[in-house]
Nucleic acid binder design. Structure first.
Lengths: 188, 188
DNA sequence: TTGAATCATACAACAGGATGTTGGATGATT
DNA sequence: AATCATCCAACATCCTGTTGTATGATTCAA
């Protein structure tokens, strides 16, 4: 890599890292550009060489966390989860948990959940779109339901101090996906 | 009511209404106190008589939208949805949809979803807590799963322009709750 | 290889605007 | 008439985003 681009890349990353360490502790509205550059060790003006404003940094981070099509393993019907790739999603979450847990948590960005869902949704839907019996509109809602449940569950899990064991969590999700909620309730 | 308190109540409400109409159109970070007081027709200083800052207004609104225990109808096992009161939740959402759809949407507040879940969760859990077979920790996750899915689904529904018919949505949610996701997929 | 031209990087300083506080005027309550 | 609440004007402070400039890196022709 060019010496020059190496420097700029590093500077940008330093700013990103400084932002993230602040973002983990405080609401984004309270983060000033001064805070970021102070922490990263740059002049405040330097920030504007790389980002438009504080929200631009967040967007940059979010974009880098949205999986690209080829990053996700191809999904085939008849796989372990019979079409709904919960495991793929869980692995994705775990891989990026450092960021996901914050972005999808209480102090995070509600738009990120949508971005994530919208990135994954077409991949899943595509698998079923050519089936003759499929109602595309309903399918859309089923996928929305699933992804919302997954995200909610995982975020909650990461928020807990005494967590359910990981394999028990995975098992529970699998059962909920395949059998529904009612059957998991003690009264049933 | 006292004339004086009537005035303050009205002023406070005017400020809240002005805030909400702005909040529906723009991110909260972009809303200035000047915007609010201009819209409501007060001096900027008056705002500080009632609220600490812009976020304080949002908190006030959110608190008024969290259902109290006696507001929610008592939940009994063996009811229509066999214990998981999805209908109760759907009705709650629809009753407050003007606010819920915004607060739980992309430009909303992720903390509100948690507040809402935490308010409803104990009511549901209480119904099962005394069953001998229940695993309280797992139950907690099942409820989290359910509420996350409901909130995600409803928010998505309100975001759509050409919505699935309401009764079809309710029917789909019922099936997903009772039978799981896998059985709703065309490949199954 | 050298050195002059060009470009990128980082910074200081400034104007504009938002914030939160203080002290005072007006009008209601007692 | 005295007291108190409501509302507002004005102020100091801080944050923002832009502009102009100095420093150092890269390029290319001689």
């Amino acid at each position: 890599m060019n010496r020059r681009t190496a420097i700029t890349t590093q500077t940008k990353q330093n700013l990103i890292d400084a932002f993230w360490s602040l973002y983990c502790d405080m609401r984004i509205e309270k983060i000033t550009i001064k805070d970021i550059t102070n922490k990263a060790g740059y002049n405040r003006g330097t920030f504007y060489e790389y980002f438009k404003d504080v929200y631009d940094v967040l967007e940059h981070i979010e974009d880098s966390l949205i999986p690209s099509l080829d990053e996700l393993p191809p999904i085939t019907i008849g796989s372990e989860m019979r079409g709904m790739p919960t495991n793929t999603f869980l692995e994705l979450y775990e891989k990026n948990s450092k960021y996901y847990a914050v972005l999808l948590g209480d102090g995070g960005d509600p738009a990120f959940a949508s971005k994530l869902k919208n990135a994954i949704k077409p991949i899943i839907i595509q698998e079923f779109a050519n089936k003759p019996t499929v109602n595309l509109q309903e399918l859309d809602y089923v996928v929305e339901y699933t992804l919302s449940a997954m995200i909610g569950m995982m975020s909650y899990w990461y928020r807990q101090t005494d967590k359910l064991p990981s394999d028990q969590l995975h098992e529970l999700i699998k059962k909920l996906t395949e059998q529904g909620i009612t059957r998991q309730l003690p009264a049933f």
